[in-house]
């Protein structure tokens, strides 16, 4: 069963990420020890998969679907608007740690595209001009952030 030990790697990384919100250096070290592989190997796997993040995530998570169905229904315009409002490119977290913006490819709710998921809540048929309200609703600090 020894060669199969390493098969736990991705599972352990998921666990670490669920607990801490990201994959910390300590988590990498602990997992490497547990599976008896080098930290470099764990790191290589973490960076290969988009599902793992090496950086702490913001308080609120904003996810935009960029799948094909959402794309043809105007997701790029929503992305522009999200990036403009949050003043960060997709994949980043606002400097104050409030919002992380990320894109995914199809969450399987194509009938409602374009889709924005804010802290696990799905918003369908989003229009660019509704973006700001969606964000302000979860955190009033957004307005302040913009005025600074």
């Amino acid at each position: 069963m020894e060669p199969r030990k390493r098969g736990q790697l991705i599972h352990l990384l998921h666990q670490a990420q669920t607990q801490e919100g990201y994959i910390s250096a300590e988590a990498i070290a602990a997992i490497a020890r547990k599976l008896k592989i080098s930290e470099g190997e764990v790191f290589g796997v973490v960076t290969f998969y988009k599902g793992f993040s090496l950086k702490p995530q913001g308080k609120h998570k904003v996810t935009l679907c960029m799948g094909t169905a959402c794309h043809v229904r105007g997701a790029p315009l929503i992305l522009d608007e999200l990036e403009r409002t949050l003043q960060i490119p997709a994949g980043e977290t606002t400097p104050d740690g409030l919002f992380t913006l990320e894109t995914v490819n199809c969450v399987g709710a194509c009938a409602l595209g374009p889709i924005v998921i804010v802290d696990g809540e799905y918003h369908g048929q989003v229009k660019p001009r509704e973006v700001k309200n969606l964000l302000v609703k979860v955190d009033e600090n957004l307005d302040r952030l913009k005025e600074q």
Binding site: G7, H14, V45, G51
Partner: peptide, 25 residues
């Protein structure tokens, strides 16, 4: 059940198996 980790290429059969084995896909 094995939960993937967000890589399109891991849908290809040989890379999917690499992924289950705990390697890069």
């Amino acid at each position: 059940v094995f939960k993937g980790a967000g890589a399109f290429v891991s849908g290809e059969e040989t890379s999917l198996m690499a992924s289950i084995e705990g390697r890069r896909a």
